[in-house]
């Protein structure tokens, strides 16, 4: 059973100034994502990955086609980690997490998430005083804390240095294992994608379509093993030479 069923015939950006300047982003894209599946979307920059996530999140409804989420599309909770952290600068770290709750925020859960992400000490600090990496971690907590049905992540580790990226990635991964839910993860980094995902979806430059859809069969307990990841990557690139040109 699919958790997300995407069937888009056409998504075109129209320039407001000139009628003739149209830019087709997506043409005939079919994609199903299973419940609690961790799917990575990979493709060249500007291919429309962010647009697709925005459409799934319901932020962009100007397209022809249908996106169905779960069985009750209106009540699905969506956590979205944007490419930039998008924290409210006038609220502290903790307030930024608490503000997304409709009812009383679960203090214990927020405490433990802050501790997991090593942000307990700065929970009363305003975001602009924190490094970008810390702000990204806050944004990840915010998305996780609402216990979403679907988690959308748009290159959440970009512009982090390698050790921080690895650290946050491991934290994300352990959070996901504690509380599995459907994840759509956009990435540029093939190693990162292999380490995290159940399935890799390779996308073409616009108009976007799926080039290949590859399951990652490395057992979960071996995902921290660099050699395993590297071997899978080598194999993948040999089997599908077209991918190399995309990344």
């Amino acid at each position: 059973m699919n958790d997300i069923t995407i069937s888009i015939q056409d998504k075109t950006y129209r320039s407001k100034h000139a009628e003739d300047r149209q830019h087709q982003v997506i043409a005939d894209l079919q994609l199903g994502v299973g419940r609690n599946e961790f799917v990575c979307l990979l493709g060249p920059s500007g291919c429309g990955k962010t647009t697709l996530l925005n459409m799934i999140a319901g932020l962009d409804s100007h397209y022809q086609g249908k996106i169905q989420i779960g069985s009750l599309a209106t009540t699905a909770r969506i956590g979205y980690v944007f490419q930039n952290p998008r924290l409210l600068p006038w609220y502290t770290v903790r307030q930024n997490i608490e503000v997304v709750f409709e009812q009383t925020p679960p203090a214990a859960l927020i405490d433990s998430l802050l501790a997991d992400m090593q942000l307990s000490d700065v929970q009363q600090v305003y975001p602009e005083r924190l490094s970008l990496g810390m702000q990204r971690r806050v944004a990840i907590i915010r998305a996780f804390a609402i216990n979403p049905d679907i988690l959308l992540m748009d290159e959440p580790f970009v512009s982090l240095d390698a050790p921080s990226a690895r650290q946050v990635r491991n934290l994300l991964y352990s959070l996901w294992q504690q509380r599995p839910h459907t994840v759509l993860f956009v990435s540029h980094d093939l190693r990162e994608a292999i380490a995290l995902a159940d399935r890799l979806i390779f996308l073409s430059p616009p108009p976007m379509r799926i080039i290949s859809d590859i399951p990652v069969h490395i057992p979960r307990e071996l995902r921290n093993d660099e050699a395993q990841i590297e071997a899978f990557r080598e194999h993948l690139l040999n089997q599908h030479p077209a991918i190399n040109g995309l990344l």
């Binding site: 999140a57 319901g58 409709e102 915010r142």
Partner: peptide, 12 residues
């Protein structure tokens, strides 16, 4: 606009 989108996504 980014913050307004965030608010929309988190159902404010």
């Amino acid at each position: 606009k980014d913050l307004l989108e965030m608010a929309e996504c988190y159902r404010f």
